[in-house]
């Protein structure tokens, strides 16, 4: 019998069977989200705390909605509004929250490994909603769900992940998940934004976007952090979008039924040209919809019993 453990800290800890379980469970959750009354009583009486040390509207909202659709009580704590900024350590914050006996803590934190620290300390379940540049497992799961919805399977697909790989937790979790599920992964971006040892993860590094997307089934464009320009990781937005942004011309190299994804929020016209953003290739809004279903599935699997 396939089950999840106490926590969801990263794709690293999941087996292919566990990944499939989450994706299958999310199918039911998507059906619930499509109903007129988008609520089931499954987690009535359970408490979910969204503990967000980094600003995030969409991920936090997605978790909040997921909890509420399952009838859990959801509380949001964000860095700006709590003692987090008053110098309390993560450890102390964790212990204080534990005193309120939550069933699940969803943690977003700028430090890699912060969810592991909390999980070791607390009996509550922990979901990693992004830790530094380490993992963002729920994003990878919702991406996989979205791809599977369109392509039926992940096995044998060629997926390109393009952009700032070095600083991307989305890239790391996706690489791990896609490889575990039998896809081929190519990464693309300027060398300044791709770790030196990236190929040791089992992916191919193709620096030029046109070549990278040759015959690709799926292209995941990563968000470019404008402030990285100051660190000279790239010379200018103009140059970046010219060589590493996706547009109709470059897309000719991909398959006709290629899917374009983005973890959002998109810098319109930088990573993806406006005409592609509004084209049927682009399934970014599906990703957002499916995000709620995946997070519902995880909540059910972690604290539903």
């Amino acid at each position: 019998m396939v089950m999840l453990g106490k926590d969801l800290l990263g794709i690293h800890d999941l087996t292919p069977d566990q990944i499939s379980l989450v994706l299958d469970t999310a199918l039911s959750m998507k059906e619930v989200s499509a109903r007129e009354i988008k609520k089931v009583p499954t987690l009535r009486g359970k408490t979910v705390i969204n503990l967000f040390y980094e600003p995030s509207t969409r991920t936090r909202t997605s978790f909040e909605l997921a909890g509420k659709r399952l009838s859990a009580d959801v509380i949001n704590i964000s860095a700006g509004s709590s003692s987090v900024v008053k110098g309390e350590t993560l450890e102390d914050t964790g212990r204080n929250l534990q005193a309120m006996n939550p069933d699940l803590i969803v943690l977003r934190h700028a430090s890699a490994g912060a969810p592991q620290l909390l999980a070791k300390m607390l009996p509550s379940s922990i979901i990693n909603a992004g830790d530094g540049a380490h993992e963002h497992p729920t994003q990878a799961l919702l991406d996989a769900f979205t791809i599977r919805e369109r392509k039926q399977t992940l096995q044998g697909l060629t997926v390109v992940i393009a952009g700032d790989i070095t600083h991307s937790r989305v890239a790391r979790s996706n690489i791990d998940l896609l490889l575990k599920m039998g896809a081929t992964v190519r990464v693309c971006g300027p060398r300044t934004m791709v770790p030196l040892y990236i190929e040791k993860m089992g992916v191919t590094f193709v620096p030029r976007l046109e070549e990278a997307i040759e015959g690709a089934d799926v292209i995941m464009m990563l968000r470019i952090q404008m402030e990285r320009q100051r660190g000279s990781l790239f010379p200018s937005i103009r140059e970046y979008s010219r060589f590493f942004g996706l547009n109709r011309e470059k897309l000719k190299h991909a398959r006709d039924d290629v899917l374009i994804m983005h973890p959002g929020p998109v810098n319109r016209g930088v990573e993806i040209s406006p005409e592609l953003l509004d084209s049927p290739y682009t399934i970014i809004l599906d990703q957002v919809t499916n995000g709620v279903a995946i997070r519902m599935a995880l909540m059910y699997l972690l604290i539903g019993k």
Binding site: M3, T25, L27, M29, P41, T42, L70, A297, K305
Partner: peptide, 23 residues
């Protein structure tokens, strides 16, 4: 109809039911 999301005995049964889609 899959009724698992409406069960009142999730905490009592031995193993968590696998959800199937309500269609």
């Amino acid at each position: 109809l899959d009724i698992n999301l409406y069960r009142d005995d999730l905490s009592e049964i031995a193993s968590q039911p696998i959800l199937k889609k309500t269609e």
